[in-house]
Simulated scan of single mutants.
Amino acid sequence: MSSLEFSRADRLLVVAPHPDDETLACGELIQCALAAGASVRVLLASDGDDNPWPQRWLERRVWIGAAARRRWGERRRAEALAALEVLGAGAIEVRCLGWPDQGLTRALLADDAAVTLLAAELGTFAPTQLVMPALADRHPDHSALHVALALALLRTRLPCRCLRYGVHGGSGPTGTPLPSAPPRLQRKLAALACHASQLALSRRRLLAIAQRPEWFDLAAAPAADSAKALAEPVTLRLTAQARWPLRHELLVLAASADGSVSRIRAPLGLPGRTPFAIDTGAVTLRLQGGDLQLARTGSTSPLVAVWAKLHRSEPRLIVFDRDGWQQAEA
């Protein structure tokens, strides 16, 4: 399928990293699905609680403690629920996971909990169409959520179509555009107005995003028993460069056909200065310059997908990635 069309048989699951992404990226698409009679559910990964500058401005505070952050997250969740009420008039199911804002990369690398929960959500709703962030989105929460969903799809093997959106992109829109319609756009802008906390400091930027056409890269999720083994050693060309003296980490996730995932998070200092090698017992890694090679050592199950990133270590003053995840797949 190459068009953005829906029917009554469709079940559309929209996964948003933060409150407002559901409106900015998919406000018109959601309306199209509802108009066709499709079932729509929105999954909010985080409450957007780590969003300090608008909170400082609106609450006239400098220090933001844990209680203030929770209160801000509650406000942003309520704004998202109000926006979805505008878009769907009560016809949209909403699930809120409450994951840490600006913490999805840590959650992805920590253990299997995030992937397990997403797999359960996919299995419960059984979407025919899954709307998810693009891997190339420059916000690390967006790209990390993409990887977590890709791993969940490999586990569940749901026969759905994936529609991947970018909110914070550096290379312009790609894929298939959804033609905008004035009534849908006006309702989308009314929904965006519910996100008052975000409009306080970023009105012009968010309105510009909301008024551009919605673009989606379309792809089929892996069908049951169809994952192809990667040729080993898997080679990835990492694009990150050391542009200033900040600490970096090598992040790697390697998925095997048996459902297991190897997670590697290793400090590097300045990337590209010295060769780097590691053996986890399950996989071996070698990084020299920008070339990363990976191969199995302790598993007989072949690799079916690998993601790697040279990640600026936290805490970070600048949220957005300059260089993001690279993916190898058959």
Rank of each mutant, 00 (worst) to 15 (best):
S3P: 10
H195P: 05
L34I: 11
R203M: 08
Y165M: 05
L230A: 03
M1T: 14
V40M: 08
P271K: 03
D101E: 13
R316Y: 13
V86L: 09
R247Q: 14
L189C: 07
R204G: 06
S313P: 05
R205N: 08
R204H: 11
Q293K: 11
E93R: 15
A68F: 10
L317P: 07
S143G: 11
Q186Y: 04
A148G: 06
R205C: 05
P213T: 04
E28M: 12
A78F: 12
I92Q: 01
R56I: 11
R61L: 15
L230H: 02
L153W: 04
G88A: 07
R247E: 14
W99L: 15
I278L: 15
P267S: 07
R8C: 09
L238Q: 06
F276N: 06
L87H: 07
T174V: 14
A80F: 04
A91Y: 04
L118R: 00
L163W: 11
L178E: 07
W325N: 04
R155A: 08
A308V: 01
A208C: 07
L185G: 03
A208Y: 06
L158I: 08
A190E: 15
A91S: 14
A223L: 15
P173H: 12
A295Y: 01
A257G: 07
V261K: 05
L163A: 05
R11L: 11
M132V: 15
A119S: 10
A208F: 03
L149N: 01
H139T: 01
H142W: 08
G170P: 06
G90N: 10
P159W: 13
G73M: 07
A210W: 00
P140C: 10
V62S: 15
G281V: 06
V234E: 00
D50C: 15
R286M: 02
L130K: 03
H18F: 03
A191W: 01
D10K: 07
G123C: 09
H18P: 01
C194I: 02
P222R: 01
I209H: 09
A277K: 05
L317I: 13
F216E: 00
A240W: 02
A282G: 07
F125V: 05
A150Q: 14
L13F: 11
V147Y: 08
E93T: 14
I318E: 15
S226N: 12
A107W: 03
D50M: 14
G169S: 13
S197P: 10
H168C: 02
L317R: 14
L29W: 04
P179G: 09
P177M: 11
L87A: 09
P54E: 11
Q288C: 10
S7W: 10
V252L: 13
L145E: 01
L149E: 03
V14E: 00
L201F: 10
L135T: 03
P302T: 04
D21I: 00
R77D: 06
